[in-house]
Nucleic acid binder design. Structure first.
Length: 505
DNA sequence: TTGTGTTTTATTGCCTCC
DNA sequence: GGAGGCAATAAAACACAA
């Protein structure tokens, strides 16, 4: 019996060597596949054939790999949507943004659910890059929907979140800066939502406040209170895309900013509309930052949009204008092409790779240590540039805007070996951010780098230099191709590391 | 070293489209 | 009916904590 088994195993050994059940793709193959996948998620027969030849794989393997890759994409997307849905619920914010009307759980949805967007459509429409925009649109659409259906039929999570928003706002807290725990009951669960209570607030909608009845009205009223005299009845619909800011909308802020007294004296700074808007944009957009890399453009749009409107106004503040100019100039310095990741170029060599790569690695480490996907980029990166650039004016202004989170972020981003905790403010609301691209490729790259760094002997990768070269190659290819989302991380470190790198040379 | 959890690869069946 | 894709599943490979 045992002999037979032994013999059998011997035989199997040989056959296994030849015809292994499962063979891992080599890094080169993976690179080729990933690259190709980034270009085309649905390769044609010919493409598959060529790729198979190129990578020394069978077409079947290619097809299978692409199939699983797409599944992986989809799954990751679903996970993120679910995670964000849960998170949003816990934070009382925008739960109904991404998932349409309702997403009871990861598995059950009602009405619109962009989890089931056709990947082909997603790809062809570039939703991977603008998905959050799409989500925002859906959110906005929902609002319109509510406007049109001001009834009690929408007993949805949206309403619940609105109720939460209402309560949060009445507490004078910024929705987008909320720590989940701040509105949890002592046992950590969500407090029961008292929609009726919101209804009993006695608010009466007026003007554009006629949105979804009293609940959202209450929230808007709270914002209105925060805005005080700056509130404009003819302003934009809250939570919906903002139009150009009326010249006088922030008149006082600008004036006060010029005197450098407003923010210091204003305890409600974090709740100020501008900051909230910024935080909102960054936190929201960063959630889908891998495929939904609208961040950079959003942030730059924030600068050029929000502040840009000031340029056109009659109330140009010289200082803020200067700041803006400096910022833009700096951006143009680091990024001559607005939509290109200039910093990628800075890191095109193997040395430079470390800057961006280590950020990724750090995030991954963070992931393993309980702050999965915490982003350090969206809100903080610009300020880091400015600080590294010793641009005091910019630094001051930026620290005004981002000061509440800068310190942590800066430290995190600067350090290659950071394992520190993220800030408790914004970052806690930005978990589950890693997207599939990052998780997949970056993990692999992190793995490879770790392998390289540790000189760990592995059967598969016998030549560390080859792996390193490949890793670099992958990084460069990846950067050049997809990753505007890396932009902030890379940008973050690029300037800081540019000088040392130069000096090294 | 081992147990456990995760990721990756392969297979199979079903569905949709042409 | 065939091709292509998706989804479920199994199993190998891998990572990591104890």
């Amino acid at each position: 019996m045992e002999e037979a088994t032994e013999f059998h195993s011997e035989e199997n050994k040989l056959s296994m060597e030849k015809n292994k059940k499962r063979r891992l793709k080599t890094p080169a193959q993976l690179k080729g596949l990933e690259d190709f996948y980034n270009d085309n998620k649905y390769p044609t027969e010919e493409m598959k054939s060529e790729l198979a030849d190129e990578l020394e794989l069978t077409e079947k393997q290619i097809s299978g790999w692409f199939c699983h890759r797409r599944l992986k994409d989809k799954k990751m997307l679903n996970d993120e949507v679910c995670a964000n849905g849960r998170h949003d619920r816990s934070s009382g914010v925008i739960q109904d943004r991404g998932s349409g009307l309702v997403q009871d759980s990861c598995g059950s949805t009602k009405h619109v659910d962009y989890r089931y967007l056709d990947p082909k459509e997603v790809e062809s429409h570039g939703l991977y890059n603008h998905g959050f925009s799409a989500a925002d649109m859906m959110y906005g659409h929902n609002n319109h929907h509510y406007t049109e259906n001001d009834s009690a039929t929408d007993n949805t999570s949206s309403e619940s979140s609105s109720s939460l928003q209402d309560r949060l706002l009445r507490q004078g807290k910024d929705l987008y800066d909320m720590e989940p725990s701040s509105h949890l009951t002592p046992n950590g669960s969500l407090p029961p939502l008292n929609i009726k209570g919101a209804n009993n607030l006695g608010y009466k909608p007026s003007g554009y406040l006629k949105v979804k009845g009293d609940i959202e009205h209450a929230a808007i009223t709270a914002v209105k209170k925060q805005l005080g005299k700056h509130y404009r009845e003819d302003g934009p619909l809250l939570t919906v895309e903002f139009d150009t800011i009326p010249p006088e909308a922030f008149e006082c802020q600008i004036a006060d900013l010029a005197n450098e007294a407003y923010y210091a004296a204003n305890p409600a700074l974090p709740n100020s509309p501008e900051v909230s808007a910024v935080k909102k944009q960054s936190s929201l957009s960063s959630k889908y930052d891998s495929y939904f890399t609208k961040i950079s453009s959003q942030d730059s749009h924030m600068d050029r949009g929000d502040f840009g409107s000031l340029h056109d106004s009659d109330f140009q503040d010289k200082k803020s204008f200067q700041v803006i100019n400096q910022r833009q100039n700096f951006q143009s310095f680091t990024n001559p092409l607005p939509h290109k990741n200039s910093s990628l170029d800075l890191n095109a060599d193997s040395t430079g790779e470390a800057s961006a790569y280590n950020n990724i690695k750090n995030r991954r480490k963070g992931t393993k240590h309980g702050f999965d996907g915490v982003r350090y980029d969206s809100a903080s990166n610009p300020s880091d540039h400015y600080e590294e650039n010793n641009n005091l004016a910019v630094k001051q202004t930026d620290s005004l805007l981002h000061g509440y989170e800068n310190s942590n972020l800066k430290n995190v981003q600067r350090s290659e070996y950071v394992k520190s905790k993220p800030s408790n403010s914004v970052h806690k609301s930005q978990i589950y951010l890693d997207t599939e691209e990052r998780r997949g490729l970056n993990k692999r790259m992190a793995k490879e780098e770790k392998f390289d760094g540790d000189r760990k002997v592995k059967k598969q990768y016998r030549d560390p230099d080859e792996v390193r070269a490949l890793t670099n190659e992958m990084m460069v290819a990846k950067r050049a191709k997809v990753d505007p989302l890396e932009q902030y991380d890379v940008k973050q470190s690029s300037v800081a590391e540019l000088e040392p790198r130069k000096s090294q040379r």
